[in-house]
Simulated scan of single mutants.
Amino acid sequence: MDTLSYTAILGRILAQFLPVWIALAATFALSFAFRRRLGLYGKLFDSPVGMIGFGIVMFWVFTALFADQIVTFDPYAQFSGMKNKPLGTVLKGAAEGQYSHFLLGGDHLARDVFSRMVMGARSVLSIAPPATLFAFMVGITLGVPAGYFGGRLDTTLSFIANLVLAFPVILLFYLLVTPEIRLTGIPVAMAAVLFLFPILFLTVLLNARFFTDPAKRNLYVGVVLLLGFWAYSGLAFNSDPLGVWRMDPNLLNVFVSVVFVNAPTVFRIVRGIVMDLKARDYVAAGQTRGEGPWYIMLWEILPNARGPLIVDFCLRIGYTTILLGTLGFFGLGVAPDSPDWGSTIDDGRKTLALFPHAAVAPAIALMSLVLGLNLLADGLREESLRD
């Protein structure tokens, strides 16, 4: 028998995801047990929509973490006789200890579609959440003082943000990630500026919190500066002497583009929230106590803005996932043979009429992750409104 039945294929796929099922069961069990002590995260489990979304998102997170144990073959390897093979095709001449079937068939280059779909989760989730987090740090660092102080600072930063937002997002992404732009040095220059913001944000945050306790302030700020500039030297300039922090030029292009495109929108959201919250009584009380403006902004106003920001963070990861898929589809992914879902969909598109499985599998994976993020955001919004 050259192929498995659909029931057997499903059973084997479920078995391959065993580490994910175990991790999901443990996560849900612990979250349910301690949900009353976990704040907004714990309240998420009171929302069926949010819980479903959380489950879908964590499925792909754990898939990315355990990808090496889940894949059945090397996602980059090509196998003789497996070009465009259907689901469940047996691998003839498989070596001892090697998996026996291509569970989701082979693509036009005789690579295992299942393994590429699984490893694609790692490719996407290694970029979208951290890049979105960097964008939030840029947006918060600029948006909080713009909304709180107003005046010329607000006018200048809002004008710059509007300039970026006025440009079509997809076209801006396309321009920023083309291989030719690396020759201009623009991505490195952008990284040199944008990657400073997490260091600046954490430094100001800790300085404002421990300003009255110089010993703790100096310790915490010193650690942030030491680790921050160590990571900064490797990520922005690929000059970490220990080789711990580094970023491939293609990845740097994509990463910087995500941060640059998302940061102005985050800035506008944070600015609007701060302008609303700065008129609240607890802000006036902090000013009366003699608290500094940065303490009030970062330790009084910002925590009260966490609900909308967490919701937008989840949604923005979904938008970024779609944009990364779009870039990969256009051949502008991290690497030409990368298993990221956009590139894999583009590879499968070429034979879509005859062999749809190569494109359908990664498309469903991408759709399900974005759906999960949207449902999670809906659940968080619902619970944050009750908070």
Rank of each mutant, 00 (worst) to 15 (best):
P168K: 07
N262W: 00
P356K: 09
E383F: 01
L324C: 11
A146M: 05
D281R: 14
A236Q: 05
A161H: 02
N253H: 09
I269Y: 14
E291N: 14
T184N: 10
G290N: 12
G150I: 12
L332G: 02
I364A: 10
L14Y: 04
T27Y: 10
A363K: 04
V188T: 15
G39S: 08
V204H: 00
L327D: 01
F73C: 03
F17C: 08
F197V: 02
L157I: 15
A215P: 00
N238W: 09
A110E: 12
A23E: 05
I127L: 14
I364E: 12
A279T: 15
R182V: 07
L252D: 04
A189V: 12
V334Q: 07
T321H: 00
F28I: 15
L163W: 00
L352C: 06
I301M: 15
G307L: 09
F73K: 09
L252T: 09
I52T: 12
I181T: 14
F329W: 07
R209G: 03
Y319P: 00
A77S: 08
F59M: 08
L40R: 07
Y232V: 08
T156I: 14
R306C: 00
I160A: 12
W230K: 04
L91T: 05
L235A: 00
L171M: 15
G379P: 05
M1I: 11
V244Q: 02
